[in-house]
């Protein structure tokens, strides 16, 4: 445990010096405030408090931003050590590869947690400031924060795995961007296209829920929207959220980080210094 903490401390320090903490936090706060400002026009006529509406739009933001930040922070984790030549020495220390990755994960999760808390917090403050009744939505805000951290963990793990597979930072960066495009953008576009052609048939009722649960980003969206019962405001793919039990999307959110980390450790074990 102390080895994981020591690694996390070092990684946090490095990320801080490389401005990652500032960049991540700045990005989250900026986007959240823009969203809050844009969403402040229509008042609470959807029957829920202001903050819950904000959370619903923050969810759509987080689906894109959190995986992006996580991949940006993680793609260098193994490939960077290989390129700098720091890996051989590190691997002769009495620390396992799992511990090294967990240390990095802890540091990166702390940064991500800080960024989303400050970002969402800023948007929430804006909502509460304009409508004190919005306090009622604090529960969904808290849910959004921890589920964002879980979503981040999945993409951090995936980033470490790509980093270990690529072994060179440039290659890892390319793979990370490709993963982001596929998992966060193209996957949903493909689903949308299928829904449209299917026209409410077997695909929409049977395959779609599975397809949504199988993608961590969609599971995150479904979980937050259905938990907040804000499905109606979301529309699109989010509209399908209502048909998926909360427990299932929560399970997907919890299992994905474990799978991603396991994959990352397996890939890292194959790296020979």
């Amino acid at each position: 445990m102390s080895r994981i903490l020591a690694t996390a401390m070092s990684e946090f320090r490095i990320a801080f010096r490389n401005r990652w903490v500032t960049i991540a936090t700045g990005m989250m706060v900026l986007f959240a405030l823009v969203l809050a400002a844009a969403g402040s026009a229509p008042t609470g006529d959807v029957g829920v408090d202001r903050l819950s509406v904000t959370v619903a739009s923050l969810t759509s933001l987080a689906v894109y931003l959190v995986p992006l930040l996580a991949l940006l922070m993680s793609f260098d984790a193994v490939a960077g050590e290989v390129e700098r030549g720091t890996l051989p020495l590190l691997l002769t220390y009495p620390v396992s590869r799992l511990q090294i990755l967990l240390g990095k994960l802890l540091a990166h999760l702390a940064i991500l947690g800080l960024a989303v808390t400050l970002g969402y917090g800023a948007a929430a403050l804006a909502a509460i400031w304009s409508d004190p009744g919005a306090i009622a939505g604090l529960g969904s805000l808290w849910r959004l924060i921890w589920s964002s951290v879980l979503l981040g963990a999945t993409f951090l793990g995936a980033g470490y795995a790509l980093s270990a597979l690529a072994r060179r930072p440039s290659g890892a960066a390319g793979l990370a961007i490709a993963l982001w495009l596929v998992a966060v953008v193209l996957y949903d576009l493909a689903l949308l296209a299928l829904i449209v052609t299917d026209g409410g048939g077997a695909f929409t009722t049977h395959a779609l829920p599975v397809a949504l649960l199988a993608n961590p980003a969609d599971a995150f969206r479904v979980f937050n929207l259905s938990a907040a019962e804000a499905v109606s405001v979301a529309g699109g793919i989010g509209g399908a959220a209502g048909t998926i039990p909360l427990g299932q999307s929560a399970a997907s959110l919890l299992l994905w980080p474990l799978a991603a980390i396991a994959f990352a450790v397996a890939a890292f074990r194959k790296v020979m210094p």
Binding site: S2, S10, I14, T86, L89
Partner: peptide, 21 residues
């Protein structure tokens, strides 16, 4: 031998010490 350029000599050694318990 190489180290992370962003760490100071002292921080790097503190890290290695911690890894060796």
């Amino acid at each position: 031998v190489a180290f992370h350029p962003a760490l100071t000599g002292e921080e790097q050694l503190r890290h290695y010490l911690a890894l060796r318990g």
